[in-house]
Measured scan of single mutants.
Amino acid sequence: MSRESDVEAQQSHGSSACSQPHGSVTQSQGSSSQSQGISSSSTSTMPNSSQSSHSSSGTLSSLETVSTQELYSIPEDQEPEDQEPEEPTPAPWARLWALQDGFANLECVNDNYWFGRDKSCEYCFDEPLLKRTDKYRTYSKKHFRIFREVGPKNSYIAYIEDHSGNGTFVNTELVGKGKRRPLNNNSEIALSLSRNKVFVFFDLTVDDQSVYPKALRDEYIMSKTLGSGACGEVKLAFERKTCKKVAIKIISKRKFAIGSAREADPALNVETEIEILKKLNHPCIIKIKNFFDAEDYYIVLELMEGGELFDKVVGNKRLKEATCKLYFYQMLLAVQYLHENGIIHRDLKPENVLLSSQEEDCLIKITDFGHSKILGETSLMRTLCGTPTYLAPEVLVSVGTAGYNRAVDCWSLGVILFICLSGYPPFSEHRTQVSLKDQITSGKYNFIPEVWAEVSEKALDLVKKLLVVDPKARFTTEEALRHPWLQDEDMKRKFQDLLSEENESTALPQVL
């Protein structure tokens, strides 16, 4: 008996699950189920560990084997000379395990699969056993689809999209007709009724959600790893209520002995410091949205989908001078704002400069500016000194954290500008005749005249004003913003236009 009217009423009120309206889709043409990776026989039982391990490696599972009696060998002398080797079968990115008779397991190899009674669906509900069930008529011709799209860092995100009359449910929550939600590992998919569980979705590319604290899981769906560094790992996640993407940084307390840091400095109150950081608001710094204190720290951040500045300059790639100017102007505005709010970044580098898009002209935002507030000064500097390429001379020669101030950030900005303009770092371990530390503390950077011949004198002058060993003589952010190279009204107008595109209400910060 159909429950279409009941569920449609529920759909009209929406769902609290991570779902959002989605535009129309072009329906895929039908194809045989076997060619799409559906096993030839149905099963109602969950797999054992041996079955799972075989399939996850990209080899055929026991459900897909063919009797050897149906095959015969071709003698080598009868092999056609022009026969080309077969292409290897792509490894599946996800697996659906059937929970009921009449449904088959599915190895997801393609990027898009339609499910329903219509014969054009890649996964067609046409098993005779299924057709005899009382629920068969409640399934729509095109009930739902599972697909994946390219996300940040060229990774993939799996989604389920509801197109049914009676509802598609993920972990008992209604997706909603015309809406989608991301699928995470071990999600249970039910059709027409929330208790009519048909599939379990296994994402073969992500970790299980159960490793994360419950308070975090209640608000966010964790997904793929976006990156990792000395101070922690960053994962893509989704807000459950809105389906908006965020980035979540995970900082290990054990790695940084944060408990010991608190004992050594009783004034170090991470929760208080995070609340201060959350109040920071500038178009060129990453917004801190939320914070969870569990076995590790979880910092929920605004997501930038254009990648890191590092990706644009790695491998001796240089940027156009006009692009360097647009990016560097924004970096200076961001660091100036942090300094005005009493925050020294201490870890400025291309990896911590994020881009809003893949376009050459785009907004940038500074991230990882609050680590000293979370990890403690000593722990952070011990970590950073392991990779000193961007560290100021006074940091390398000081004991502990004494003896330096916000000028350290201006040195790091000078190193970043040098790399963007030239395509190579000013200080490098590859210069074996002088140690990296000695290069930095003496201010002897690697200047290649033929490379810098293409760079304007004004740009080079600003680099020199920032890479000054004496912090008292080094340019401040205010002085850098007043430098002739940055007195470019076309560049500032472009920045204002980019801000307006992102948010019509965002105004250009005042600069002296």
Rank of each mutant, 00 (worst) to 15 (best):
T272F: 09
W114V: 10
S140D: 00
I146S: 05
N184A: 06
N185Y: 06
N196W: 11
T205G: 04
F199D: 00
S56C: 06
F144L: 05
F125Y: 02
D265N: 15
N112A: 09
N184D: 09
K197S: 03
S67C: 09
Y139L: 04
P88I: 05
E107I: 15
S32L: 09
F144V: 02
S120A: 06
L63S: 07
G165T: 15
F125G: 04
S210R: 03
D101K: 10
E161A: 14
K153E: 03
N112S: 12
R240E: 05
E127S: 10
T26H: 07
V211W: 03
Q100T: 11
S39G: 14
P75D: 14
S223I: 10
S12Q: 15
S44W: 06
A237E: 15
N185C: 14
V246R: 10
D77V: 06
I221C: 02
A237H: 00
L226C: 12
L193K: 03
E87Y: 11
A261G: 00
A190D: 11
K244E: 08
E79M: 06
K179S: 10
G23K: 03
S39L: 09
G30D: 06
A94T: 03
E84W: 07
K135H: 06
E84S: 09
S28T: 09
L130A: 08
I250R: 14
D126C: 15
E79A: 12
K142M: 13
S24I: 01
R195L: 02
P88T: 06
R95S: 07
I251N: 11
K197N: 02
F144K: 03
S73A: 05
Y72V: 06
F202C: 04
S55Q: 05
Y72R: 12
S31G: 12
S33L: 09
T138N: 03
N110Q: 05
P266L: 14
G167W: 02
T172M: 12
R180H: 14
A247I: 01
R195F: 00
R145V: 13
S52D: 02
Y113G: 01
V170E: 02
S12N: 10
Y156M: 03
P47K: 03
N154Y: 14
I74A: 10
S260W: 15
V234K: 00
Q29A: 09
H54N: 06
S50V: 11
A98W: 03
L106H: 08
E81N: 07
D111M: 12
F103W: 08
S40E: 06
A264G: 02
Q10H: 07
F147G: 00
A17F: 05
D134P: 12
D118V: 12
A158V: 09
K141S: 07
M222R: 01
S24G: 10
F125H: 01
S41F: 11
S31E: 12
E4A: 08
S49Y: 12
